[in-house]
């Protein structure tokens, strides 16, 4: 279990990461505003980054850091494209609601 309060181990970081991930996931599922959904996605990515860094740190291996670096770059790219889409949607509907992405409906 969470052993002694005073000592911070790998599991603490991992649980923090899981909590952050689930919070982001909750946002993605629940919010109507596309912008907030994008922010929630950033939260999820950061949660993953935390576990990467923690693992890397506790394994004495730099590969995790490199992975974090890549994740950050991809996340930035994703944010740019997502925001561009949001701008396009806003131009069309004057509102930024996930409902307007529903044209895939069969």
């Amino acid at each position: 279990m969470l052993s002694s309060i005073g000592e911070i181990g790998l599991n603490h970081y991992l649980i923090l990461s899981a909590a952050l991930f689930c919070i982001g996931m909750f946002g993605v599922l629940m919010r109507k505003n596309a912008l907030v959904i994008l922010m929630s996605i950033e939260l999820m990515l950061n949660a993953v980054n935390i576990s990467f860094v923690a693992f890397s740190r506790y394994q004495n291996n730099l590969d995790g850091f490199v992975m974090v670096f890549f994740v950050m770059a991809v996340a930035a790219a994703e944010a740019a494209v997502g925001l561009a889409l949001a701008v396009a949607i806003f131009k069309r509907f004057r509102e930024i609601n996930i409902r307007f992405f529903e044209h895939l409906k069969g």
Binding site: M30, E102, H103
Partner: peptide, 10 residues
């Protein structure tokens, strides 16, 4: 298949 993205995520 109602097109609701968040439903799909669910």
């Amino acid at each position: 298949q109602n097109g609701n993205l968040q439903r799909y995520a669910l």
